[in-house]
Nucleic acid binder design. Structure first.
Lengths: 166, 166
DNA sequence: AATGAAACTAGTAGCCT
DNA sequence: AGGCTACTAGTTTCATT
């Protein structure tokens, strides 16, 4: 007798993405505001299946977010800094506290836990060097349990994309 | 007599963003597919000015892109690596050639020119360690003029946002 | 699981204040 | 420059194959 599938398992059962799903994702990645009509024209399907596939990908979490990306300079956020952080203590509690603080800092747009001599890599975005200095001295350095800190300044953006499906 | 403004200057003249524009941007950053109706309800304005303000921000380049962000794991792109690169030669031509190659590599989603001992920082996204090994050995290392290479592996994503306006 | 049409909802433009 | 209204276009559902 086959093993029974629990209700929770059914809900999270992964439906693999077929080539049409990937085509839809490709178009959506580039332009989140593309119309279903336009997609259906391009991938040779009527609006109904396109709509259903998008809804399915939204519900299953394949589509994480429809985001609007703004021009850094035009909103006065022209400075980007990569910041490496090591903590003094590595207890679970110390880590949790650090992560909580990072989430509260709007200047930190990315934070990864990494391999190597440092514990975390941060991407910090702010207006200019004065603002970064203030952030570094008064916010980052003040975090409890903060160990070493190293800043790498981004001088130019060569490439920046969100195209994971290609 | 006041100095005449050239046509080109008029076209690129920056209209500063007021608080309503910023409120619209805040909502759009979170959800690029929010309706104009919903925005107008939230910021206490009718659809006409909301529509006009969005159009103006699109045309002036404040709004760069409406992007759809996908779940890395669910599209089989679960490994993220930060890669530091230095070139052997630093002539203008060598740099241009490197940049051209980087744009052709789908695995590279970000590339910044940076301060410090390395020349560039890359964010590389691929399926798993096998795929990264292949990318490193057969694509990255093969780039003409490639000097030193250092990989930092992302073990966990703590924070990732695109919220520049808050 | 896709099509085509119908019903509904949102986007867009003109006119008025 | 914002609001109201009418028109156009897109979304979403349903019957059908």
């Amino acid at each position: 007798m086959p093993k029974a599938i629990k209700k929770e398992e059914v809900a999270t059962l992964e439906i693999p993405l077929d080539s049409k799903d990937l085509e839809i994702l490709k178009l959506l990645q580039e332009n989140a505001r593309i119309t279903i009509k336009e997609i259906s024209g391009k991938i040779h399907l009527s609006t109904t299946p396109v709509h259903e596939r998008i809804k399915r990908m939204e519900e299953s979490g394949v589509i994480k977010q429809y985001a609007t990306l703004v021009n850094h300079e035009k909103v006065k956020k022209g400075l980007m800094v990569i910041c490496y952080v090591s903590l003094k203590q590595h207890s679970k509690n110390a880590g949790v506290k650090f992560i909580k603080t990072i989430h509260e800092l709007n200047e930190v747009v990315e934070c990864f836990s990494i391999s190597g001599e440092f514990d975390f890599m941060l991407k910090v975005i702010c207006k200019d060097m004065n603002e970064y200095y203030d952030f570094h001295v008064n916010k980052l350095s003040q975090i409890e349990n903060m160990g070493h800190l190293q800043s790498i300044f981004v001088m130019g953006v060569i490439k920046q994309t969100h195209q994971l499906v290609y």
